[in-house]
């Protein structure tokens, strides 16, 4: 193994681990003010919005790919499908589309 690469991997591991670990450890048993507790409870839904849009519309050069994947996933989820079913359904729809 090239020692430069190993060093790079270790450094990348460190700067990836720190943001994941610090808040959990620093705020362990710390009670934040109610406003900020509320903000942190909002974070997952806001993050999900930003993780999905606009990324999903750029997964392939063909824009319809993202639009179709987005629509089928939203539809399946809205009808109450389990997460795995949502994933498999949208992959299936796009496989069909790719075949056409």
């Amino acid at each position: 193994m090239h020692s430069g690469i190993v060093l790079l991997i270790l450094a990348m591991g460190l700067v990836t681990y720190i943001p994941r670990m610090l808040p959990l450890v620093v705020f362990h048993r710390v009670q934040l003010p109610p406003f900020w507790q509320g903000v942190l409870k909002n974070v997952p839904y806001a993050t999900l919005g930003a993780l999905i849009v606009p990324g999903i519309f750029f997964i392939q050069d063909d824009k319809w790919f993202g639009v179709l994947g987005f629509t089928s996933a939203v539809l399946a989820a809205w009808l109450g499908a389990n997460v795995i079913v949502v994933v498999l359904a949208s992959v299936a729809v796009l496989s069909l589309y790719a075949l056409m």
């Binding site: 839904y45 993780l51 997964i59 939203v74 989820a77 079913v85």
Partner: peptide, 9 residues
């Protein structure tokens, strides 16, 4: 992405 949608909706 579909998984994120399945978790959010």
């Amino acid at each position: 992405y579909a998984m994120f949608i399945g978790l959010l909706v």
